[in-house]
Amino acid sequence: MQEALQYVFSGITNGAIYAAIAVGFSLLYNSTELINFAHGEFVMLGALILVTLWNIFKLPLPLAFFITVFTVSGMGLLFERLAIRTVSKPHPIVLVIITVGASIFFRGIGMLLWGKDSYSVPSFSDHAPITIFGASLLPQSLWILVIVGISVCALHFFFKKTLTGKAMQACAINKRAARLSGIHSEKMVLLAFFLSTGMGAVAGIIIAPITMCSYNMGTMLGLKGFCAAMLGGLGSLWGSLIGGFLLGIVEALGVGFFSSSLKDAIAFLLLLLILYMRPGGIMRVKEVKRF
């Protein structure tokens, strides 16, 4: 019992991070129908830039947080401008391959700038772990849950309450009608990249204290986030959350009760299952296209 609770706690913590990454995938897919396989690298950049600003330049944490998010989403904008917008025939498969190439490129940049070493940062606050029914919950887990919660609420508010959010949604629902209603669809795509890579940076920042940060941490995180997004339903904000937590908890229980060597296999097993049974994900938004 106590053991199971401990696994669930660690599952929720990882799940929140997968959810944050999945939200990034979903945001972008929703407005561009593009799956950005470089998304994991933005998570890596988020973690490493935070390490640099906080640990090496000794900036206060909140400041380092915001600078990191804006730097990474700025890079997301550049990525869109330089690598995606410039494609003369933007067929989906071409764009997906470009994002795969970009992920290799970003990993290379990461290796050049930070080397092959791993970095670690302390937890955001140095409280003692909290014990609940004999299972201990790390303060960093609470930070992760709170920050993911705030980000998702902010996104929800953005889409539900602001005109720009509505315009972006409109673009995702019916691009033709949105263009003819005077919405500049290219600007909306740019905004989607900004928000998506910003969410990636947030995920990287909150995961930094509980993992070893290195140039190649992004690949697996990106794939896990992708699995979570597919599980929940690509394009749905709430679906990404459900998918993220589901993946995190199932993974933690699998590792705990079976074998830790199964950790990565579980995510892909779940992905295959959902693709067989319900290709649109749990919260199906739109029919997934096969190209």
Partner: peptide
């Protein structure tokens, strides 16, 4: 509301 976006 979306129709108004262009005027904001």
């Amino acid at each position: 509301l979306v129709g108004q976006y262009v005027r904001t």
